[in-house]
Nucleic acid binder design. Structure first.
Lengths: 359, 359
DNA sequence: AGCGTCCGCTGAACCGGTTTACGGAAGGAC
DNA sequence: GTCCTTCCGTAAACCGGTTCAGCGGACGCT
């Protein structure tokens, strides 16, 4: 880099060439009213001729701020970007950051370590998505002293947080199916549902609690065997449903904690010659754009993903402006609601359909 | 920020507390072999107790590099992230950056100006996606002196570039439809097709050239009125097709330059009670994951989007390592191929279907 | 003429690290 | 006992900007 930096035109070069001090060059760009118009013009002319561009890192250092916020993901970017949920969320964060003149850095584990990644992250604050409280490096993150807004994760008292009413949304989904006469359910969960701890704050835990509370209210028990954990991908949902089916599970309704998994269930159902929604009802979660592409369009629990990103960014930026301001530690819970489309219908009547199982 | 920086533990604080010089503290972290083990241990202990974390910006400044690369998008992130194509591409870039220990900054116009955005971007190099040669700020970008890899855009001789065989892919799509007996086509193009200039290097221009060369080879003329420009979104494709239909266009096959638009055409067709593929064949472009969700699954031109991102990142990182290395200015063209699924079929026979037009 | 103000500009400190050049002490060779 | 290394550690320069305090000259006022 010695080479590149020797090529680079520095402020001192401009100053020398224009016959002024470094300070004047700086003022010419940042506070031209402090200089005479002629001097400003001359400095600008020289700078232009030399192709001078202030070094952004040096500027950051003396400014004491980076004008950049980070989106922190505990998973590798190489995988998380594939998730349409993440892209949509990032879209929300980005739109607010952009509007307020902030840059956006994507932060993911550096050789497996979030701490290392944080050590090199030049940001003023962080939006952390889905950071599990038991993540081994939360301590390191808190110690950075950077303002953080937690999204879809257990809140830290001193920091902002945004989540949605996961439990309510899940309950609404289950109640919708109960209302259609379903009595036999399969749940396709996402990662850590923390069965043991009913107070768990993880997204999966809250959703499961929502499903259960509705079902229990209707006198239906949801055994652990009816809860399958699968990655939130099409393939994940497909595999999980096929496996459950193969093991003899014959639900009339499937509650999925992600739209991607629900889309996978749709495909699995097709391969089993099950007709959705006549033979099988399927509900997703998140309401991503892909729910309108599936056949049939997916009934799902809507959550304002993009807005979640916007709100998180807004809280973070507020905290940056006034670290002790009223917004700084705000905890916001956004609403969820059921979006009924065409993947759900009345439970198949008493008569059981003849079905060709694939295996 | 004065407040935050006064809280922050600096290297000088650690040095004072440990009774050593700043240099020793620095060595303790970066080159511990230069100090005695006891001193290193003592410094580490003090640093730990005080919660010292080296300031990443200061480190960057003296290191002369940022260990970060940027993805530059001429459009606002708030819109571009919504595009699954972008997310997939970014995934490729990110995976390579991650593996090589580089951070990822998203760069988009700052209050409308790419130049301003670049001025604040702390990156060592840039992957520029879809940067039109006529963009008013290309000059500014070149002048930054940063290494750039151009993707899906006219190449600059001194910089790396990656693109795909857009023309060949388009030709294959058109030939596939010709082979199925289609004679009447509609093209849904994306942004600037640069009709005028057949040598235009824009993606849309190349794809259009591909379509035309196949059709001309079969003696079919594609009038400009059969080329509709629409945003690469579901709604964009839907609207464009509906409008064309309303204006009397009755193609048997639609060539779309994006999968999203193709998915929109599928929906439009459904609303017009056209059956795909029996009444209408539809071909997309890009082969995004969503092509497997549509009903029917979409025949499309595959391009290795993720790999495109990987290759771009690799060329860029190579250029960073050795600015004049053999990789630095590499221009790579990746392959495309047709992925035939179920949205294309033989053209409806001589007998024209009875169709209920919606308007 | 003497004094106070304001204007335009500058020197130097500062942001927070890294790195180079060097000095003192300890150890080994002769 | 002297000289040469080696080992530890430090002072100071450096990265490239921003900004504060202050200085000299021009101008206006009395």
């Amino acid at each position: 880099m010695a080479e590149r930096s020797s090529e680079r035109v520095r402020i001192a070069d401009v100053a020398r060439e224009a016959g002024v001090s470094k300070a004047s060059v700086s003022f010419a760009f940042n506070r031209p009213e402090r200089l005479s118009p002629e001097t400003v013009a001359r400095i600008h002319a020289v700078a232009e001729r030399l192709g001078y561009r202030p070094h952004p890192v040096a500027r950051m250092l003396s400014a004491g701020s980076t004008a950049t916020i980070g989106i922190l993901s505990p998973q590798a970017l190489g995988t998380v970007l594939a998730n349409p949920f993440f892209a949509l969320f990032a879209e929300g964060v980005a739109s607010v950051a952009e509007e307020r003149g902030f840059g956006l850095l994507l932060i993911s584990p550096h050789h497996g370590s979030l701490e290392r990644a944080l050590a090199r992250a030049t940001v003023d604050g962080i939006v952390a998505l889905g950071l599990d409280e038991r993540h081994p490096e939360v301590g390191a993150i808190r110690r950075t002293g950077l303002p953080v807004v937690l999204v879809d994760a257990p809140a830290w008292p001193e920091h902002g947080a945004v989540r949605v009413d996961d439990e309510g949304g899940a309950r609404a989904a289950a109640e919708h199916l109960l209302g259609l006469g379903h009595r036999s359910f399969l749940v396709i969960a996402v990662e850590p549902p923390t069965f043991g701890d009913p107070r768990a704050e993880s997204v999966a835990g809250a959703r499961l609690r929502g499903y259960r509370s509705a079902l229990t209210g209707a006198g239906i028990d949801l055994p652990d065997s009816a809860v399958r954990i699968a990655p939130a991908t099409i393939a994940g949902g497909e595999d999980a449903f096929l496996r459950a089916w193969r093991e003899g599970s014959r639900p009339t309704a499937v509650l999925c904690m992600s739209d991607a998994a629900a889309a996978g269930v749709l495909q699995a159902a097709r391969s089993l010659h099950l007709h959705v929604p006549d033979d099988l009802s399927v509900v997703g979660y998140d309401d991503l754009p892909l729910t309108r592409l599936t056949d049939p369009p997916l009934t799902t629990v809507h959550q304002p993903v993009r807005r979640k990103g916007e709100v998180a960014a807004r809280i973070l930026l507020a905290a940056l402006g006034t670290p002790a301001g009223p917004e700084a530690g705000r905890h916001e819970v956004l609403e969820t609601r059921l979006a009924v489309r065409r993947s759900t219908a009345a439970a198949p009547g008493g008569r059981r359909m003849e079905v060709i199982a694939s295996a």
